[in-house]
Nucleic acid binder design. Sequence first.
DNA 1: TTGTATGCGTTATCAC
DNA 2: GTGATAACGCATACAA
Lengths: 387, 387
Amino acid sequence: MENGHPPGASTDGDEGTSPPTVLSGTGEIGEPVRTAQGATYTRTMTPEPTPRPRLVDVAREAGVSVATASRALGKGSELIRADTRDHVRQVARRLGYRVNPVARSLRLSTTGHIGMVVPSIGNPFFMELVAQVEHCLAERGLNLLLADARMSVAHEDHLLRSLESGAVDGLVVAPCHETYSTPALERAAAHVPTVQLDRGVQLDVPMVGVDDPHGIRTLLDHLAERGVERIALLSNTGSNVSSVTRVRAARAVAEELGMRLDPDDIIECSFSVDEAGAAVNRVLDRSGAVPDAFLCLNDLLAIGAITALRGRGIAVPERVQVTGFDDIQFAALMRPTITTLHQPLDAIADRGVSILMGDDDSTGRIHIEGTLVERESTRRRPGAVGE
Amino acid sequence: MENGHPPGASTDGDEGTSPPTVLSGTGEIGEPVRTAQGATYTRTMTPEPTPRPRLVDVAREAGVSVATASRALGKGSELIRADTRDHVRQVARRLGYRVNPVARSLRLSTTGHIGMVVPSIGNPFFMELVAQVEHCLAERGLNLLLADARMSVAHEDHLLRSLESGAVDGLVVAPCHETYSTPALERAAAHVPTVQLDRGVQLDVPMVGVDDPHGIRTLLDHLAERGVERIALLSNTGSNVSSVTRVRAARAVAEELGMRLDPDDIIECSFSVDEAGAAVNRVLDRSGAVPDAFLCLNDLLAIGAITALRGRGIAVPERVQVTGFDDIQFAALMRPTITTLHQPLDAIADRGVSILMGDDDSTGRIHIEGTLVERESTRRRPGAVGE
DNA sequence: TTGTATGCGTTATCAC
DNA sequence: GTGATAACGCATACAA
């Protein structure tokens, strides 16, 4: 019954409707389509998962072309008549249109994402660095794609490889290792704009971090003013450039200041607070003479040192003074609070992101000076008011 | 010399160079093209920005169609002959081909990114939560797009709006505010799969967090065992559900245990450690009678409380005991170390991500029990060995 | 000022 | 098994 047409009539009837209806073959050209549509639209009780409107839907609804619609919503807005623009915008709002960021990215070949890879996201210092970078990016309307290398060069390589292949517009990296991270970083930097933060491998990739020698000098000056004549140095294992630089600076400045820093009193220990404590105990057990101060290369080590010292009944800062480095949040929470060198992470992050975005055409290595934060783990200045 | 062709020959010679080869038309079919190519390749001194190879380049080089190339590199690999597959792969490797993730995302309408929004990235607790989520995602090959709401519901709304529009496959949110975050969260959840972590607004969006009543009960039991008869409670301002739930549980359990918890001894203060200290001082100044213990609703508050107490010469835990909640890193670093309720953030994150990915079809609110960590801020159990 | 048409790089659906 | 081709959703060069 439905197909009760003379066979001959259907011959060219399908030509016009080819795409949607294919070979409906019937004589009632538009009939089946409209009916079908109407039926679907009206009677279906399904939650009607309203397919997300595309630009073309907005354009059609507004009675303009996609080009005009695009211009109305995007940046060509000054090229079109104000009323068309407003009309399109209104239609877009009514339809709940949102541009598809992925399609936009493909077209523009820019994602608005910045990747960041840190050695260990569990380390308070890097957490704070991440927070600062996130803020800088947010200010510029960029998103942060965060990845944790988990202290593994292999994993870092893997992450960078994934990120460098087009997922991000730029890369912020705090390399795991001074030398082993180099190949991955070089490859990554060859693919996408990259900047190194906090530490950097020897590569022609911009890097911005704190001024380590300046920081060490500041701390040692501070200690010298407080009567310290002999120090021990607590460094972390794993050769990252910062450590090496800081140790070297400490040796030089100590000598310059006439302070005693025995090679045996330069101790390497892992990041863990406990191990720092163990290292301190080793120093104390070894030599009868206790150093006047422990210069710790980061705040976590300082915490470990202070805890160990107090555990042995050695008063901090009265008998032995302790300094940290970085000024992580907890440095102000410990008792005693820790005298340390504040890293201007906001400035470091900002500078790094600026370079990445091309707002700042600096190149090479940039070192920003930190500032001393005097707290309770060192004594008050002799002769200071109230002492 | 090089151009030693009869003038007539050159007429259509340039025509052929228009695209790459097309209709070279001349007798010397490939000649001009090859020369031009060779010249460019050999003589140009520019850094040769080698346009990144696309799939079509690999296909052409391998002598197959893009379809085949795609299958060889992607998942259709079992449908094609092994040797073609290997050949294509080899060519791809030689050319340094990497699929364009954006194009892939557009085609597949899936990004491989998961967005995460936290109230404050500077808060150690959320930092640790972020770290756990990152790990769970990394295990599944997903990327983390991290955003900080900076304690602002408006900002949170903005971030969610941006993320929900197609940039991510799923959303992990720790809402800023118990009620004000609701609209934004509801909208977001309507656009993309969403799960709430740690806290949740009243909405039909799955949420997974610690079991607050259980945690509070555990802590109060611990305190009761240690002779505590009167407690004060330090809560944080800003109504998030957790706080309210914990306070309610504390009242109920305290009564049940016969502990005294005066309404005046339930103090709200901001997250800051300093303010916690101030709050403690207020309590102590007000009433002559000092509570036996401070039940703090998070570790930061506990740190503030301990510092304030010790600052007034009140021994912790001898005279007053203190408990925290969360077990952030610093809880084990403070002196005294803090007895607290450990939140199983790894399990919470894992469960949340599982739900998000559809591996776990749980719905509603899921509460995972934490575990007590006994440290120095509470006394040793009376009658315990060695006491 | 607006519209038409093309391409961004993939994957999947058909034919062959 | 493999190849042509249509989307995916958008922005712009070029035409009108």
